[in-house]
Design a protein around this nucleic acid. Structure first.
Lengths: 203, 203
DNA sequence: TCTATTTTGTACTGTTCGATCTAAAACATA
DNA sequence: TATGTTTTAGATCGAACAGTACAAAATAGA
C-alpha cells in the first residue's frame, strides 16, 4: 500500500450524486426561502439526496449554508470582483450596477439577493448566520471602498468625493435594489433606478 | 338595561394588562427577530401576558403581526405621512430621509426596519406575511409617487424627472438605509448616505 | 352570598424541527 | 466468493413550535 499518495481509488459504495450540483440546489433553496425558512426536508428534496448523505457530505445546516454563501459569492455574485477591475471609478460603478441588475433582474433566479434574503432578523438559533451575512456584506463594502481609494490616487475620483461616503451611498442603492427585486419589481424597474443613479453620480 | 348603548361596563374578571402596551412590546419583538424568528414564548414574555390572553385579545400569531405592522406604520414609521405634507418635492425628500435616519439611527430601536426585518424570505407557513410586507412597502411607494405627481403639476419637479423613476430611486436608497442599519451602521453613517443623496438630487 | 361572565395560569395537543442511529445496499480488493 | 469500506434509505430521537382545553381566579350584579 502506498501511504504517500492521496487515495485516488475510492473504496465502498460510490456517491449517488454530484456534490457540486447538490450544493447549487441548496444555495437556490436558501436564496428563495432564507435560512430559517428552509427546512432539512426542503433541502433534501431539492438536492435529491437524503439526510444522512447531506450530513456526511456537508455537515449540519449551518455549515451547509456557509458553503452555499461562499458559492453564491463565487457564482451569482461574482460580478463584484469583475466590477472592481474596471479601469476607472465611474466604470466600476457602471459595471457593478449592471451586474447587480443582471443578477436581480434575471427571472430564472429567486427574487432578491441571498445575502439579504438569507437572514436579516432571526431567532436565537440563527444568530450566527445573521452575523455571517452582515460580515459578508461588510466585506464587500470594504473591497469597494478600497477600490475607490485607489481611484483617488489614480485621479479618477474627484477631490470633493469621500471614498467611504461614495461606497456607503452606492451600497445603499445596491441593497435597495435587492429589496425592490424581492418586492417583485422587474429588470426594467431596476434599470430605471440604475439610470437615475448614474445620471446623478458626481463623477 | 340600555340596549342602544355599547357596553361601557365590563363584566367578569378585568384585564391584567394594557392592550396598547402589550401590542407595542409585540411590535418590537417582531421588529428585532422577524416573524419566523419570533416564538410565542418570546411574545408572551415580552408582552408579559400568557398564551391564552394573547390569543383571546389578538388572535393568532399572524393576526398579531399584522396589528403590530399597522402600529409600526402609525408610530415609528409615521414620518412618511409627515414627509408627504412637505410643501415642495425637494422638501418631501429631505423630510423623508431625515425621518428615516431618525428612526433607523436611534439606538433605542431594534436594528433595521420592521418591514424588511419582518420577512423577506420565508418557508411556506409565513408566505402570507411576506406578501403583506411587500404590499406594505408598495403602498408606501405608491403614496410617494402620488406626491411627486402632484409636485409635477405644482411646478416643483423638473420636467426631465419622471415621478415614478424618482420614487423608485428614492425607495431604493431608503431600503438600502434599512439594510445598513441592520448591518449595525450608526446614525452618522446613515447621515453620510443621506448627504450624498441630497447633494446629487436632481431637484 | 350566590350566580353569571370574563380573564388568567398551566398543562397539554399534534406537528414539525434539526439531527442521529441502524441496517441494507453497492462498490473495490483479495 | 468473502471481506472491508462507504453510501443509502428510513425509522427515530428529543426539543421546540403554534395553538387549545380547562379549571381556578377575579370581578359585577342580584
Amino acid at each position: 500500500m502506498n501511504m504517500t499518495e492521496t487515495a485516488t481509488v475510492k473504496l465502498g459504495r460510490p456517491r449517488g450524486f454530484c456534490e457540486d450540483t447538490a450544493l447549487e440546489a441548496a444555495m437556490r433553496v436558501f436564496w428563495e426561502k432564507g435560512y430559517e425558512g428552509t427546512s432539512l426536508t426542503d433541502l433534501t428534496e431539492a438536492m435529491r439526496i437524503n439526510r444522512a448523505s447531506l450530513y456526511s457530505s456537508f455537515g449540519d445546516k449551518e455549515t451547509l449554508f456557509r458553503r452555499a454563501l461562499a458559492r453564491y459569492g463565487e457564482g451569482p455574485a461574482a460580478y463584484l470582483k469583475v466590477a472592481l477591475q474596471a479601469p476607472t471609478a465611474r466604470r466600476v460603478v457602471e459595471t457593478l450596477l449592471k451586474g447587480v441588475v443582471d443578477l436581480l433582474g434575471n427571472p430564472k433566479n429567486p427574487r432578491g439577493c441571498l445575502s439579504t434574503q438569507g437572514a436579516l432578523a432571526t431567532g436565537l438559533g440563527a444568530e450566527p448566520i445573521k452575523n455571517a451575512l452582515i460580515e459578508w456584506r461588510k466585506g464587500a463594502e470594504a473591497e469597494i471602498q478600497k477600490r475607490f481609494k485607489r481611484a483617488r490616487t489614480e485621479g479618477d475620483l474627484p477631490e470633493d468625493i469621500n471614498p467611504g461616503d461614495l461606497t456607503r451611498y452606492l451600497s445603499s442603492v445596491v441593497y435597495g435594489l435587492g429589496i425592490m427585486a424581492a418586492n417583485g419589481d422587474t429588470k426594467a424597474d431596476l434599470n430605471r433606478v440604475v439610470d437615475m443613479t448614474l445620471r446623478t453620480l458626481p463623477l
